[in-house]
Structures are given as structure tokens and as C-alpha cells.
Amino acid sequence: MCNDRLSGSLLVLFGALVLWRASTFPSLAGLEYGPGLFPSIAAIGLIVCGALIGFGSRGRRKAPSTSTMPPQQTGWRMAARPMALLIVILGYGLLLDLLGFHIASFMAVSATALIFGMRAGGAVLLALPLVIGVHLLFYSLLRVPLPWGLLTPMAW
């Protein structure tokens, strides 16, 4: 699960990208410093730390885990669930304005419930009151302009 070589390399790569982008920023009139300074500091920091993490020592080691969770199970199904959740959120972001808050949220909640192992009927029973509750709290009480999307004709 914990792969220092990979995460270190990714940090170095990312730092280099940021450094390259930051070098294109203009500098402040009369000074050698400008908008690029802080991104560059962060980028150099990332490159150095990434190198230390990924290539600092030869021996394979396990990082001290800050996670408070029980030991993780292995198997592709376990890794697949977080991926599926990310896809649900991606879809939510893409479809929110189009479908509107109510339909998109209903779908997202049902899908999440299914991912967490609920039956289809239960998922619907959970999603419906939840969406109504969130609507009342955020739209009616807090006046957050949630998008109506497809349901715009019904909006109040």
C-alpha cells in the first residue's frame, strides 16, 4: 500500500512542473522577486523532499501510519470502492448544473449507498428523505441558490 519510491518520484515530477511554470511568471519591477518566488520555493521544497523520500535510503521501509483505521484488507474490490466513489463525485460535479441539485444528489446518494453495500430499495429510501432534508436546510433556511436544472419549472 505504502510506496515511497512512487510517491517520492511523483513529488519530484510535480515540483519540476511547478518550477517550470513558475519560471514563466513576470517579476516585480525593480526587484528580483515576483509572483514566481513562492511557487518556486514550494516547488524546490517538493523536489528535495520527494528525492529524500523516494531515493533517500536503499532499505525498504514502512512509513509510520497516521491512519487510525484498522489494518486494511487487500483485494481489488477494496481498491475499487474508493475509485467508484471518486467517479460518483466526478459525475455529480459534471451533472449538477444540468440535472439540478435534487436529481443529481438523489443519484449520488443512492450510488454511494450502493457502493457501501446497501440494497437498492434501502438506497432509495435513504436518498429521498435526505435530499428533501438538505433542500430544506440549505435552500429554504440558508438560502443557498442550489441549481434546479431539469426541475427548473417546478422551482419555488
Binding site: 515576483g34 509572483p35 516547488a43 521544497g45 523520500i53 512509513a63
Partner: peptide, 29 residues
């Protein structure tokens, strides 16, 4: 965590903070 990893986390945060219009000349980053 380890010092290198804590620093990486810090630098990632600093990088995220630099996203947007910069304070000195208003250059979008």
C-alpha cells in the same frame, strides 16, 4: 510523520495557497 513527509505536505499546502491572482502584481498563477 517523518520530517521529509511533513515538509512535503507543507510544501503542497504552500503550493495550493499560491493558486490564483498573486498579491504583488496581480498575475494569475
Amino acid at each position: 510523520g517523518s520530517v521529509a513527509k511533513s515538509f512535503s505536505s507543507l510544501f503542497l499546502g504552500l503550493f495550493i495557497a499560491t493558486i490564483g491572482i498573486d498579491v504583488a502584481v496581480g498575475h494569475p498563477r
